[in-house]
Design a protein around this nucleic acid. Sequence first.
DNA 1: AGAAAAAGGTTAAATATTTAACAAATGTAC
DNA 2: GTACATTTGTTAAATATTTAACCTTTTTCT
Lengths: 157, 157
Amino acid sequence: MYLLLFGNITKIMSQGLHLVEEFLKSVDKVKHAYKQMILKVIRESGVDITYEMLEVMRILWNGDGVNQQVLANATLKDKVSLTYLIDHLTKRNWVIRVAGKEDRRSKLIYLTEEGKSLELIFKPHMESINLSVLNQVPPKEMESAIHLLDKVSKEWT
Amino acid sequence: MYLLLFGNITKIMSQGLHLVEEFLKSVDKVKHAYKQMILKVIRESGVDITYEMLEVMRILWNGDGVNQQVLANATLKDKVSLTYLIDHLTKRNWVIRVAGKEDRRSKLIYLTEEGKSLELIFKPHMESINLSVLNQVPPKEMESAIHLLDKVSKEWT
DNA sequence: AGAAAAAGGTTAAATATTTAACAAATGTAC
DNA sequence: GTACATTTGTTAAATATTTAACCTTTTTCT
């Protein structure tokens, strides 16, 4: 009886493991496919920018004048990586660092005119890519998926 | 009339865009949270391995003797990255490259005894992490999410 | 008030990814 | 059978991430 029960438990665990592995694989595939789409847009634009730099610029186009740690959190990057990326964006004259007045440790990141103008190039493509998904997935289903994904990441945080 | 209609369309588009951005953000958060869990396991193990190397080893523990391109596809990595990772796994004596007989361009990757033994260290932790999610998400919901994620990545491929 | 902890940011070194280019081998077209 | 296209894998260079350590500033604790 116990052996039968134990057998059943290991079978259910095995199926559960497989399900979660498949889920993670599907998450990876979404991320990978999206990144390839964006890399294609970058390649076709001829602009000397990387996917990671574009991720940072995207946050800044929605509102600049934020400090590096806030930017790191918004892009899920470590502050070390963020420092590095800001260095490169500064070199390309797309952003500037401005010392914070309230907190002298803090550096605020602002867009330059050139940095702002890049939005005109990339935003339409990025929005088009994002909207294309809605051909396949109704908003209600997407909302459910978001809810589930958030439950998963919450469990692992 | 047309202006009213147009106004509605732009409002729906705007909401759709926001929904997809939120979805992508949630996908990123899942991946990021998972990676941090794994990095913690690596740190606590004391083994000199990286997250990316572990991803490759995980595929090999399920079946070695595959060529590099197959391994690259399975891990969603570019062949250049895969070459680099195999170099490092080889240096650490966890895998070996064996020239293919059927196709002389091909190199098959096999685990060494030491490489196999790493499975005993990492697999239990990785399975525990994966199973922990099932506390929050019923299998049926996870299956639905997988289905949606696959529809999204298919649209972008 | 002063010490300790934490936060914001930087630098160094090792590893990973991307782009570009190349070489050898195999597959396809004619 | 030969030319061309594609595949498999490697190397080089630039960029990105991770770990570790450090410095300055602010916050918290006693």
